[in-house]
Design a protein around this nucleic acid. Sequence first.
DNA 1: GTGTTTATCGTCAGGCAGACGACTATGATC
DNA 2: GATCATAGTCGTCTGCCTGACGATAAACAC
Lengths: 252, 252
Amino acid sequence: MPYDPSAFPPFAVTVDLVVLTVRRHALCALAVRRGEPPFQGRWALPGGFVRADEDLAQAAARELAEETGLRVHDPSVPAQDNGAHLEQLATYGDPKRDPRMRVVSVAHLALAPDLPAPRAGGDASNARWAPVEELLQQGGYGRDAEPVAPLAFDHAQILADGVERARSKIEYSSLATAFCPPEFTVGELRRVYEAVWGVALDPRNFHRKVTGTPGFLVPTGGTTTRQGGRPAQLFRAGGATLLNPPMLRPEV
Amino acid sequence: MPYDPSAFPPFAVTVDLVVLTVRRHALCALAVRRGEPPFQGRWALPGGFVRADEDLAQAAARELAEETGLRVHDPSVPAQDNGAHLEQLATYGDPKRDPRMRVVSVAHLALAPDLPAPRAGGDASNARWAPVEELLQQGGYGRDAEPVAPLAFDHAQILADGVERARSKIEYSSLATAFCPPEFTVGELRRVYEAVWGVALDPRNFHRKVTGTPGFLVPTGGTTTRQGGRPAQLFRAGGATLLNPPMLRPEV
DNA sequence: GTGTTTATCGTCAGGCAGACGACTATGATC
DNA sequence: GATCATAGTCGTCTGCCTGACGATAAACAC
């Protein structure tokens, strides 16, 4: 059977981004305000169409750079840092997910250290970091008791999936360091885990565990008192990507 | 900015399936022979175009049924069984992955108990279960020393990703039971783990562990001697999907 | 019966995790 | 400068889980 272009329906393919960071002890995601229908004026995840000559990962990295200015961390350059972590999350293709046409969206998950301020085409009012619980409580009320509309499209589901991926992945991988600046203390790393999991962790057991896991942390020799209290050692992320033994998320 | 159909390039969207089963103590995947170019005559993963009104999961379930006759296990019907497990794996969209046109493939992973014989449009010579190592050793030689061509497209990568997903997922979920018939013994379940991981496990420790993990196995009361030796208790899969504590894959 | 195979129960030592006490080194406050 | 609050770091103890492995049980083949 020869190739017949009419044998398959045409799709639009987009990438959507779940960009997570930890700000003020809370797990936050990047949201942008939609400037056009459908869902005009509603908050949504950043994203856009995949171009004709672009790989999916390239498209996601391009969108991430456009929205945040972040460059993607390249694992082949170990010294480099402060780039974001980017990985494919899942693909969403319900026929009715976009009322205009048939769109398949390849969602990606990005983890970034705390950033200055978001920018979306230079207009700050159209992009913000919001705590994920706030974005996920559909139709509830935000921190200042203003009404919050649910995210556009199926983005609440995508965000929930991304958050769950991040929560489980920092258990057995060194991904939590992607939320930290290039040099960080054990306490700062612990606060990342606490924010992502939404629990309190014992500082002493956490310290023992994280410094005892081979390849997780490399001491830089420096110290800092930026958190107050006794000066703390500074570390960089070690080469290990898989943690053995893993960090264990406390009891459900 | 109004909706402009020329603003995005059209894609073809397909689903590809990594269908895994355990046969004769080896992890095997379903492969079909391509009847048309490109890669005519080469082995590939089963798959096909997503239809205009179809969800991605629906398309994958349809392709699975067409290739194997398997129905997908519906978790909302706990009593039912012997259906296959199906989940989305990842999406592959390199611009050059299909020489004909721009194709984005949403790969799915299916786990099935040992089946009679594969069928691909009724032609058995065009579908087979092959050990995954055989399919992955690109350009090597098969069991009977016949030359083996690498899988078509990027299907070797997709298969490798699917196998790795299965290997890691049976660690912390009860997914290994998807490889077993509705009722099975601890020994049969152990042979599944051994085949998927490619290791030997201590029968005594495995028995203790698997029967001690709450919600993993439910005794049916029956026994069987179909494996020879002393009669073994029969179990069904329990309701638990996440294992706590997890099964631990032995040392690398 | 003897041997073989598989299943199942027990024992023991080592390692890791959670709970928590103790001490250290800084900045803030009086 | 003494005191306090804050964070960081090192230990201890106990219980649980794991891996290694001995022992017993119940079927089948000869």
